[in-house]
Design a protein around this nucleic acid. Structure first.
Lengths: 224, 224
DNA sequence: ATCACTAATTACCAAACGGTAACTAACTAC
DNA sequence: GTAGTTAGTTACCGTTTGGTAATTAGTGAT
């Protein structure tokens, strides 16, 4: 069927979108948004290699080449996606703007920020699933996001280091927090994996169980 | 080059194995072992969708159809792999046979077993990477191992429940250990992810930092 | 020696992959 | 109106995908 009769091509064999609208032209920003949204869902579900450009195109409702026009190539789509995901994650700056307890510049508390982060992640399951999937996939040096994920941990530490966290004097300064920060990130990865698998646990609740282990009483009691 | 001149086919374009041995016939067991070993490595690196049957065949040094003969289909290869990985994981039975402190039937200690498990995982990085990759990929209900991973947590709990662990009386019986077991699994997943990303941490050391958090003094001091 | 068995092979197949090239048509500015 | 820009399209291309069918050759039993 492929090599024979190159003309005709009528009812579209395995096409998900049988009847396409006339030809809807949208602004590049809008289309890019649609593409990213679809890609987050699909790649979160099936991973980088489990999703084709055609899949994304079908989900958006345009042709494959329509997608490629906006993302350049499949790898281009991935870095676009990573930037989007990365920028969309709840930063300390977002926390400062949140108005939550322990989020004021003169009383900025790290455990409070981590709670904020977990609570935020709990509201964007698809994003977390995408992230988890990419983190596992990008162990392979050939993965388009290998370097990004490789540099991520140090990047997080550096970013967090720029904020005036109020921590207990017994700690001896922010620089001694690195093992705790590392452990916190590991725990978050772990509970997210558990949360993504159904039947799911309550992500916020699970973090609440871990918090006193990572920030024990009485040292941290006045600094959460 | 491909469609023209079907004869000749001399130097093999992108072939990993340019010159194939005459035709080496091995026992099914041996071949299956080779296939599994190659599949663990490749799928651990690139994931289910990132590895083709041809890739596995090249790594083993036989033809694609040679592989399919042993595994039936690609999905068949996956379930074979899972069974292999699952059976190869360090069970409480393995611990009982280890002769390590806290591994005798009349003094069987859960923290000691978890240390044993972590130490064992630290010696089989590729296996852990495969496992992590599959755990993330199999969030998708369409993944061939979706059900296996879905049932895994309960299965682990049930398995562990069959052993006469000696735990502190304050706990109030093994059934109250479930939250702790759950947290331990989450931490293991988290530190493994960190361990697999280079520059790696020391897996055993990292677990040693978590152990007193999950099994705090003085309650557990005599039960590790 | 020759037989049955079967591991492994070559030869295909339709479909899907990422990507290029050329064309169409929807919008804006004049 | 008319021209320029560009979002989106169809039409391909070469390669790879998982899988089937038929064939070849290594091995142990007789």
């Amino acid at each position: 069927m492929t090599s024979t009769s190159p003309e005709q091509a009528p009812p579209a064999v395995g096409q998900t979108e049988p009847s396409r609208a006339k030809r809807l032209r949208k602004t590049p920003e809008e289309r890019r948004g649609e593409i990213i949204e679809a890609a987050v869902r699909l790649i979160g579900e099936r991973g980088y290699n489990g999703v084709s450009v055609q899949d994304v195109a079908d989900a958006v409702g345009i042709s494959k080449q329509g997608v490629l026009r906006h993302v350049g190539s499949k790898d281009g789509m991935m870095s676009m996606l990573y930037r989007e995901v990365y920028n969309a994650s709840a930063t300390p700056d977002d926390f400062l703007r949140s108005g939550l307890p322990g989020s004021t510049p003169d009383d900025l508390r790290y455990p409070a920020y981590l709670r904020f982060l977990v609570r935020h992640n709990a509201t964007r399951r698809m994003m977390v699933q995408l992230f988890t999937m990419l983190e596992a996939e990008s162990f392979n040096p050939g993965h388009p996001l290998y370097d990004e994920f490789r540099n991520r941990r140090d990047g997080i530490w550096l970013t967090h280091s720029q904020y005036p966290w109020r921590i207990p004097p017994q700690i001896g300064g922010w620089k001694h927090m690195r093992p705790t920060v590392r452990k916190a990130m590991e725990v978050m990865d772990g509970i997210q994996i558990r949360w993504l698998r159904d039947p799911p646990i309550d992500l916020v609740e699970e973090w609440a169980e871990f918090e006193p282990l990572l920030f024990p009483s009485p040292i941290w009691d006045d600094y959460r």
